[in-house]
């Protein structure tokens, strides 16, 4: 896996929700590819870890799933955002922005001495 980082477990859910918001209903393989692409191949998703995360989100009611047909006429299970999922995405995104903003201030170089 080299210099690529494993996906940070907690943020995986947020990425999944965001992906589904951006692209609409999508199957597991598509979600995995999308996350990998968006991260600019910096993140190596072990695709298998995505499925328990999808199951957890579904059990919690943030996403729902149904079987459908892919562009290549292949049967696949499609996931899509629910209303609760949309709300949850807004909430988690805000929290994440706050966290990164705080961390950014801490890590900004030389501010205190100025």
């Amino acid at each position: 896996m080299g210099d690529k980082k494993d996906v940070w477990q907690g943020t995986l859910a947020l990425m999944v929700l965001k992906t589904l918001q951006a692209l609409g209903p999508l199957h597991g393989y598509g979600i995995a590819r999308r996350i990998e692409q968006t991260s600019g191949d910096l993140l190596a998703v072990n695709y298998g870890t995505l499925y328990p995360a999808l199951l957890k989100l579904e059990q919690e009611g943030y996403i729902s799933s149904e079987w459908g047909t892919s562009d290549n006429n292949r049967k696949a299970k499609y996931y899509k955002l629910t209303r609760a999922g949309r709300k949850q995405l807004g909430k988690e995104a805000r929290e994440w922005e706050q966290t990164t903003a705080i961390l950014a201030r801490f890590l900004a170089p030389g501010k205190e001495s100025a």
């Binding site: 199957h27 393989y29 598509g30 695709y47 059990q59 892919s70 290549n72 696949a76 299970k77």
Partner: peptide, 28 residues
């Protein structure tokens, strides 16, 4: 999750199908 304890076979079949479809797309 509690309810899932009682419908194991169906879940197993569904997971197998989902994995098969995932692999098929990736292989393609």
């Amino acid at each position: 999750r509690l309810a899932a304890l009682f419908r194991k076979d169906r879940h197993e079949r569904e997971v197998a199908a989902e994995m098969a479809s995932h692999l098929a797309m990736h292989i393609e």
